[in-house]
Design a protein around this nucleic acid. Structure first.
Length: 216
DNA sequence: GCGACAG
DNA sequence: ATCTTGTCGC
């Protein structure tokens, strides 16, 4: 029990340390129309991670990769990387991702500015964007058009974005090597029916794989 | 101390 | 996240 709080304290310190390395500028700038997305599905202690790379112009999936691993780490708000990090690192570490990577979770929209998307970006040196379906923290400011800034004291940590076809907003934040405005732009451009298509596809493929795994 | 809390 | 049927709507 004491070991758990010690682990949390260590993770917290590591988050603070790594967050200093987050780059909030477009490196490289977003020019191609290739966007990727990753998601993880679970059945008991089995986790299936899926990557989808798609071309926004043609709406075609140009690459799909999956990884199945054993995962017993608990989900603890603020420490999502503890649970999804291992699967995603195994899935992505040897791949070349030809465009920004959308991650189901937050980037800098996090108590210590290092949500899953940022942590993954730093660890694998990837350009990432955080997209969450519910608000982890921060105060949503007045809506202007289809967006609203999310503040934590004086820091703008993300943007609430109302996408066409979805009632509630998604919460976009900088993962790594990207600016908040470009992150929002990418999410808008890759969305269909109120949700980013690369994430929707990654989610459904991971779920299908899990179904097959259960059936066999 | 109480409540909130990405998936 | 996951457990889960029908049902309303385009």
């Amino acid at each position: 029990m004491a070991a758990v709080s010690e682990l949390i304290a260590q993770l917290k310190a590591e988050q603070r340390r790594l967050s200093e390395r987050v780059i909030m500028e477009d490196v490289p700038p977003f020019e191609s129309k290739i966007v990727a997305g990753v998601d993880v599905s679970y059945v008991e202690s089995v986790a299936v991670g899926c990557l989808v790379v798609m071309d926004l112009q043609s709406q075609k999936t140009i690459q799909t990769e999956q990884k199945t691993v054993e995962c017993t780490a608990p989900y603890i708000p603020g420490y999502f990387f503890l649970r999804e990090g291992p699967v995603l690192i195994e899935l992505l570490e040897d791949l070349h991702i030809p465009g920004p990577l959308l991650v189901d979770g937050n980037g800098t929209l996090h108590p210590r500015r290092l949500g899953l998307a940022s942590h993954l970006g730093i660890r694998l040196d990837l350009q990432t964007v955080g997209v969450a379906k519910s608000l982890l923290m921060g105060e949503i400011q007045q809506r202007q058009g289809n967006m609203a800034s999310i503040l934590d004291h004086d820091d703008c940590v993300g943007t609430a974005l109302w996408l066409t076809g979805r009632k509630n907003p998604v919460f976009v934040s900088v993962g790594h090597r990207i600016s908040l405005s470009t992150a929002v732009e990418i999410v808008q451009h890759s969305s269909t029916s109120g949700y980013p298509e690369p994430l929707r596809r990654a989610h459904s493929i991971a779920k299908e794989t899990l179904q097959e795994l259960q059936t066999k």
